[in-house]
Amino acid sequence: MGINRRDFIKLAGLSALLGLGGKSAFELVLPGEVEAAEKAKPAAEGITRWAMVVDMRKMNDQIAAKCIEACHSIHNVPNYIDPPDPKLALPDPLKQRWQIKWIWTDLYEHAFPGMEQDVLWEKLHAMNFLLLCNHCNNPPCVRVCPTKATYQRPDGIVMMDMHRCIGCRFCMAGCPYGVRSFNWRDPRPYIAKINEDYPTREIGVVEKCLFCNERLAQGLQPACVEASGGALTFGNLADAKSKVREVLKEHFTIRRKPHLGTNPQVYYIV
C-alpha cells in the first residue's frame, strides 16, 4: 500500500498534534514547563528566589528548639502536645492527630527516607534534622489546590490564603514532605500567648510555614533564621553575591526527596 504526499502531510500534522512529535506539543501548550519540571530554573537577574540552607554541623537540639519556639510563638501555632493550660490536656491519640507544626525535627531516616544504609556515618544517628516547608520550585500542593488558596509567589514562596482555603486537604495529600497541618478544631485555646500582630486561624483550614513572608516584607530574616545563631542561612538564590548562594557553592548539600522533581529550596549541609 503506497502513501502519497498529501496523506503523509496529513499524518505528520495529526501526529504532531497528538504529541507523537515528542516535546513539541507540550511546548505549544505549556511553554517551558517541561524543563521547569525537570531541573532547577537558572536564577535570572533581578528576580528574587528565596532559599534556605540548614547547616547540621552547627545545628543541635537546643538551637532547633529555639528555632521552633521562635516560629511557633510569633505565628500563633497551637500546642496540643503540651497545652498552655493543664486543664486542656488531651488524651494520647488526639494530641498527635490534631498536631500543628510549621517547623519541627526528625531523625535522618525519617527526614530522608530511602537514603538509609546498613552502616551509616555514626554522627547521623544522633542528628535531629530541622524540617519545614521546602517552598518547592515545582510544588505539587499548588498544582492540586482547587481554589488557588495555596499559590506560588514570583519569589518562590508557597503561600497560603487562609481566607480562601475550603479545607479539602488535597494539598496535604499532595505534599510529599508532610509539612502541612489542618485545623481539626478551634486552635485558639491552645495558643499559649496570642501574638496580636499575626492572625490566628479558624476551624477547617490548612496552614504551614510561609518563610516568614510578613518579616521579609519588613526587610527582616525569617524568625527561625534569626534564632538559629548562624545554623540557618537564608537568602536570594537569584543573587550571585548572596550568602545562601556562596554557602551552596562551597558545600555539598542534600535535599529531601529530590527525585520527585519538586525542586525543594531547603538545603542541608550534613
Partner: peptide
C-alpha cells in the same frame, strides 16, 4: 465531598476561582 470539607461555607470558591490544574 461536602461533609469532608473543613469550610463548607466556602464551597463555591471552587467555582469562583476555577483552577483547571486541580483534579478536584
Amino acid at each position: 465531598v461536602i461533609v469532608d470539607l473543613g469550610r463548607p461555607d466556602r464551597l463555591f470558591n471552587i467555582i469562583k476561582y476555577p483552577t483547571p490544574n486541580s483534579v478536584l
